[in-house]
């Protein structure tokens, strides 16, 4: 049996402006980036767009640039590039941890940072990373560019703030500084699968080991990627003793509201949010202090 997608018209955009114009003009159009979520969806009949705008040939949309105020990641940056980058491995361990646990090398060769966050499934790993790092999402549309905070970007399952004629062009991550550290932990049924649950933690600590800022993002812990805001604000100003970690991970667990599905019952996933939050914070703390 072949699983064949419905018919669609196909066009290649050669610039961001052209992609936006095509998305604006064509009926029921969708962006085709790495295709590693969209094509399986089209094969299964979950999506049947009438037209696809292929952005893979837009030049200069695949980059990692930390020469300015932030780490700028081009929307077309392949996940494999995040895995292979020394800069990411050294300065942005949270992103590196997550990238290495996404799917398999074949999927990562095509899957893009932009596609992973725009697909915005509860099981995609990079949205939680963006939430924990307080990333900014840069979008281009017919009326120009706008910059959106990650915490507002993820509206619902498969739904972001982007309009149908907007293209995500860049994600900006606060630049690594002394005292920053992060970690991503993911529980999976087998290598390459979507998370049962995943936890992204990013910390900035001062010389005494007191947290100045804390970011926690959760994967598969609700119908959409979520931020564990209560745990985050409770941790600011504290050193991470086991007791503190315990309280914070309980707060994160209480924020979570996972679905029961083939990857496990909700109750189990909630318990695992607590375990992984504890461990992710601990590792992030160690890395943040190790960098001092």
């Amino acid at each position: 049996m072949f699983v064949i997608p419905d018919r669609f018209s196909y066009t290649v955009a050669h610039s961001v402006e052209e992609a936006v114009e095509l998305l604006h003009t064509l009926e029921d159009s969708k962006v085709l980036a790495g295709g590693q979520s969209l094509i399986p969806f089209m094969k299964l009949g979950y999506a049947s767009p009438k037209s696809l705008v292929d952005i893979n040939r837009i030049p200069n949309l695949d980059y990692l640039d930390d020469s300015g105020e932030s780490l700028k990641i081009g929307a077309l940056t392949r996940i494999s590039r995040l895995c292979d980058s020394e800069l990411v491995a050294k300065d942005y361990p949270l992103i590196h941890d997550a990238a290495l646990q996404i799917a398999d090398p074949l999927v990562r060769n095509l899957g893009t940072f932009g596609g992973n966050v725009c697909h915005a499934d509860m099981g995609d790993d990079l949205p939680a990373v963006c939430l924990a790092m307080n990333a900014e999402m840069v979008a281009s549309g017919p009326s120009g560019q706008r910059v959106l905070a990650a915490k507002d970007f993820f509206v619902d399952r498969f739904t972001t703030l982007l309009a149908s004629d907007e293209l995500l062009t860049e994600v900006r991550i606060p630049k690594n500084r002394r005292g920053c550290g992060g970690a991503y932990l993911k529980l999976e049924r087998r290598v390459g699968d979507y998370a049962i649950v995943g936890v992204a933690a990013q910390l900035e600590v001062d010389g005494d080991g007191v947290c100045r800022s804390v970011g926690i993002g959760l994967t598969s812990a609700s119908t959409k990627p979520i931020k564990a805001s209560e745990a985050e604000s409770w941790l600011v100003g504290k050193s991470l003793s086991d007791e503190v970690l315990d309280k914070a991970s309980t707060l994160a667990m209480n924020t979570s509201n996972p679905l029961s599905d083939i990857r496990g019952p909700a109750e189990y996933k909630k318990a695992m949010v607590k375990v992984l939050t504890h461990r992710a914070l601990k590792l992030a703390y160690k890395r943040a202090r190790g960098g001092l």
Binding site: R7, F8, S9, Y10, T11, V12, A13, H14, E18, E21, L22, T25, L26, K50, S51
Partner: peptide
């Protein structure tokens, strides 16, 4: 617009 749009039933070479 310069982009070439291939219709859904086109035989693209």
């Amino acid at each position: 617009m310069t982009a070439l749009i291939y219709p859904a039933d086109a035989k693209v070479r």
